[in-house]
Design a binder for these strands. Structure first.
Lengths: 290, 290
DNA sequence: CATGATATCTGACTTTAGTCAGATATCCGG
DNA sequence: CCGGATATCTGACTAAAGTCAGATATCATG
């Protein structure tokens, strides 16, 4: 009665019968689901018609008709793309923005209503994060971003907080060598964030230097996204970027209180080397020649 | 970017777009979704037509047509109910059972495939249990069952395992006063299990005795179902059953290593009394007059 | 047994989603 | 500028789901 398969199936049943209740914001504004989905995709910043069609899995004929019906309602405008007049871009009109906001408000209200009904908020949210990450694993994208932007700062904040929990002596970022943002931007280095459906769930920094090697810094994976081999993917992306930038030697430091990190490095061609800096936190040092 | 509402909405998006992938067993046998859902409802033991219609939320006309199409395929038979010939009962034919088994096999295979893709199996399953319990909270039923049946034995096994984890000295059921099964069956007592979509998620025993009081025993709530006030509901049901049985005084013992239990008792009209037995595990004793 | 309520069934209808074969306009490489 | 490729649009179609008003049979009750 309690084998894993039954548990997965019970979850499926619960979710399929509740998902309508969880979010039926697509209904409730007397517009067919298809049109509502397209309107929401546009509202969420997708404008390329082919991309929306692909994202929603629609036939081109159907997509065309849905766009037309939204246009007839006065909610969107479509224009040919400047660089390729075969392709079309869609954007919301003022009325469309109002309508989109109404959908968003409905959806938010339903999510709030759901949360308000349940007492174990944090446990529930953590479980939801874990499942959402597992389900969207295939769709995790690795994006190079500026280390000072919101997503990067969020990741770094979580990373520092986790070090604080895991190091017995805590962690004070001001005592560590805080890398200069420009060392983690091209052409000296880069900063890569893993995004799952607009939520940052991991990051890694490649920090250029003038010492004949670059460093891997700030490798972090959100607790809800562990077990998806995301650390490996991030490291792989960072090493590829390093190769592109003509870097031939990589180093990193880590701490034995983070055993999963050490294991990852060892299993991906890094070899342990003696201490190469005077940062107070790390006690393990690695190097990899590209 | 990470407020609770966004997290709930991300989960919704992930689940709605993945639920097809999680279980599309309803497709894949060239039968419309509606008919497949009815067939599966019947296969899962629902036979009353009105009940199925209510469960699946179908219009009576539509339901009638779906039944007819399944009958035409030779998968079900319907008969008038003996006690009320207006109502109809549906049951699977031999061919229907084969077809249902094929759906079950598909669904199991998909659940297995899903599990095989993911490395953090236990964490994922625990998260799924938690969410399924939260979503189906409204539909938890409290059933009186025999304490020796499978569901009861499962609950007791989990209960003992949890005591073993939480008591610093471990827990050996043979050292504790194991109540006689017949003391937890009517008319001396009862055993109540909380079922969520066919999964037992909590239990409580009411044990009759000849000492002028009855005892509450084995109050347990599955970790995935905590925070839903299920303990309270179980206790309430046990007390109601005790009143029905003419019991006027209830006692129970517990351990200070289970603080949430003590808190529950105190907040529901129980008062602490001196030790009333020589069981080695409990160190807290309560009484309630009905 | 007459009467109103109830459960199911039937026929006629609408809406939505989806499919597919072309039509049209534009792009790109030679 | 030509010819094949590409993006979108249009028309004609189907399948599925759902709605609604009655028809029919049965039940409960006085």
């Amino acid at each position: 009665m309690l084998d894993p398969v039954s548990r997965v199936r019970r979850f499926n049943r619960a979710v399929t019968s509740a998902v309508g209740a969880l979010d039926n914001s697509f209904l409730g504004r007397s517009r067919p689901l298809g049109a509502a989905r397209v309107l929401n995709a546009i509202g969420h910043g997708r404008s390329d018609v082919a991309e929306i069609r692909d994202y929603l899995g629609l036939d081109s004929g159907l997509m065309s008709r849905l766009l037309r019906s939204l246009e007839d309602e006065g909610l969107i405008e479509t224009t040919a793309r400047e660089d390729d007049a075969r392709r079309r871009m869609a954007k919301l009109t003022r009325a469309g923005r109002r309508e989109f906001a109404a959908y968003e408000a409905l959806s938010n209200a339903q999510a709030e209503g759901f949360l308000a009904q349940h007492s174990q908020r944090e446990a529930l949210l953590a479980a939801m994060d874990l499942i959402a990450s597992a389900l969207t694993r295939e769709r995790v994208t690795l994006d190079e971003i500026d280390p000072r932007c919101e997503e990067a700062r969020y990741c770094l904040g979580e990373y520092y907080a986790e070090l604080g929990r895991r190091f017995s002596q805590g962690f004070d970022v001001s005592l560590s060598r805080d890398p200069d943002a420009k060392d983690m931007r091209r052409p000296r280095g880069t900063f890569i964030v893993a995004m799952s459906d607009r939520l940052p769930i991991g990051c890694v920094g490649l920090k250029g230097s003038d010492h004949g090697y670059a460093e891997i810094k700030r490798l972090w994976v959100a607790p809800a996204a562990r077990g998806l081999r995301l650390g490996r993917r991030l490291m792989h992306a960072a090493e590829s970027a390093a190769r592109e930038l003509g870097i031939t030697l990589l180093r990193l430091d880590t701490n034995s209180a983070l055993p999963e990190a050490g294991q990852l490095y060892r299993s991906t061609g890094w070899r342990e080397i003696p201490r190469f800096n005077d940062d107070p936190y790390p006690d393990l040092f690695f190097e990899k020649r590209l």
